[in-house]
Amino acid sequence: MSTRHRFLPLSMAAPDMVLARPVRLTDRGRVVLNFPAQHSLTRNNISQLRAHHAQYVCVQEEDFRGHLARERFEMDQIERLQKIFRHTNLGDPDTRAFFDAALAYRAA
């Protein structure tokens, strides 16, 4: 089973979610909270994150979609982005790179 990374507002974080990226919160240069990647969040951890005003976490989730469903989802994202970029010149390297970055994020 493959996994995917999702950035969530803290209000959507739940116990047992696994961090895909470390969380390191500082206050006036002092580290006040430090969770490594792969750390499994507990209810207490989420309260600590709230208390220190964290706004988001990046978690990893198992990707239950089959190959076809993933491919269809990516096609939908390409179609949507082509519509959003319809007034731009995708031959321009900066515009193309931005399009690809947006696609990589949306299709993940």
Binding site: H5, F7, L8, P9, Q55, Y56, C58, A104, Y105
Partner: peptide
């Protein structure tokens, strides 16, 4: 890093 940049903006906007 651009994946994380877009992710942080998305999550901070929802917040």
């Amino acid at each position: 890093d651009s994946f994380a940049l877009l992710g942080v903006i998305d999550a901070r906007y929802q917040h």
